[in-house]
Amino acid sequence: MPKIKSKVKSQKSKVISNRNIKDNYFEIIIEAPEIAKSAQPGQFVNIKVSDGIEPLLRRPLSIHRISYQPPAISRQQRIKNSIVLLYEAVGKGTEILSQRRPGEFLDVIGPSGNGFNIDRRPLTVDYRPILIAGGMGTAPLVFLAEKLREVKSKKAPAKAGSRQILSNGREKGKMLVLIGARTRKDILCEEEFKNLGCEVKISTDDGSRGFKGYVSDLLAKELSAFSYQPSAIYACGPKLLLKEISRISCERNIPAQLSLESHMACGIGVCMGCVIKVKSKNAKGKTDDKYSRVCKEGPVFVANQILWE
């Protein structure tokens, strides 16, 4: 992944809102202008959810969206230069986080890690990326979809009726988003992706909506029906899912970028706790296995670089 040289900051940041969107899912907005200004899709922040020693460690959460506005505009606005995080209150840390109220301050470190390498070529019908979200892995992909759309729309396609025609004469394609969830209640961000002009397909483990099975199975099914080669795969979710996506993408020779989840102690690259095994070239040009830090070299890795255990 490209090294993003944004300086990581530690700061007390104000909670603007912390909303229960459904079941155990929450969306927190935190005022953090420095982070919002430089954050890239796939990067994360590391939050101290309470002042005490329980829980002891920070909680890493990927950045779901940013609402960065230039200072000239933000002066009139109360909500400004903030980051949005989407999380499920499942453990001690996220449960405490879900109880934090607007106006309170959180100690936030970020933006951390290396995000997605964004493909800057314009979309066409036969040239488009697939975004694959498993469970909470949906969170950073909304930010990514926003950025991908922003990049693409800068190379403004001319409108021709309801269809958009690119300068090369091809019809503008849509990003395809595959969302995998446990049940239909756990499907996240479907509307957000649609509003961004993405085509969305759903899979649920129990079949309560969409394709029954894992989202990697849905991917395999979709790919076999494709008449073209997708330009790229971007995925985020549990390790086993990413392992399967990695296998599929390597088999079909589709470049894939995977954002990994990992337990982290420090999140700043010193404890060496969050590692995964990757291929690397040593000084003699030979391939050597080594451990790579999810918090520093990651969380986004190129699929064919990872050595799955």
């Binding site: 102690a265 060496m272 590692v275 095994k277």
Partner: peptide, 30 residues
Amino acid sequence: KTITLKPRMGNPPPRTCETPAGLLNSIGLE
């Protein structure tokens, strides 16, 4: 961080976990 004569790859993950007011680690001197 501790240095050894030869490079050390360290132990397989998971290497850390949080405990009540504590942290368990087994990095293995990577």
